[in-house]
Amino acid sequence: MLPFAYEKPKSLDDAVKALADEGAVPIAGGTTMIDLMKLYVLQPPKLVDIGGLPGLGEIEETDDAVVFGALVRMADAAEHPLLKSDYPALSEALWLAASPQIRNMATLGGNVLQRTRCPYFRDTSYRCNRRVPGSGCDAIGGINRLHAVLGTSETCIASYPGDWAVALAAFDTEVDAVSRAGKRTIAFADLHLRPDDHPERVHALKEGEVITHVRVKKTPLGKASTYYKVRDRESYAFALASVAAALVMDGETVKDVRLGLGGVASVPWRAREAEDGLKGQELTPETARRAGETAFRDARTYDHNAFKVPLGVETVVEALMSAKTRA
């Protein structure tokens, strides 16, 4: 790690003030930040430790939303009775992620901003447009088995590695953020930025802005939802492909459906066209597979990750058929 200034404000207001300093970044669980600082991938001059701030550690139910404080630990959210009963995809995406220790540390607000595992991003000796804009992308032409097939660009093919954000993408989610400029609400679909011309910009938060809440709009889709994750080993591994599926069924027919894809895309991915194609259809492995094929129709593959297309399609089938058993 390079030297940094450290400050531990006592209130959100103080935190926002401290974050106004140039280059200051918030830290809570630290599971991504400290890891990447040790690799010199991140070199923040100042850390503002918001981990102990009061008032951001609760999960609350309002009339129309489930509201997660940004400092709720992943492990606590995974165990929350409301999630387990009414939004199993959200609970499963949490407990299938990382390890128990990391889930005890990592916060929900930090987790949605998890950085890519692209090895060329994580090692400063390689070329990486995300780390050093304009330097090139060593993943293209390199080892890219774990990289994205959806939402990539000529400049970056890194995949978004997280799980919970994939489940959030399947629902109507918003995040509340605050900075010295005030509070604002960002639609979840707008939070993560595809690489396009500026892969170094991974999220829509401004300098000094910090997430305070994640709100998921209440929906009957939650009950019959699941998060299905395929990985190289049984646990403590990143997704090769994952799918958050949520259903409202009318008998055998799909009334409403949501599909979030993980491990395969540059950002938490919502497969809207695949959803549209399924609505009004009978849900069978065949129609589910067609939905999967639609979801990956625009996939672009590289030397080692072409398998993510057939795997992703089959993961959509598994997730949908599994969600159906809860409908």
């Binding site: 595992r117 090895p119 060329y120 390199g142 080892i143 080993r233 049984e234 646990s235 403590y236 990143f238």
Partner: peptide, 16 residues
Amino acid sequence: YVNDNIAEYLVPVNAD
């Protein structure tokens, strides 16, 4: 060597 760590060089975990 690209996966020179034990998050991406996978060894069996308890669940395996």
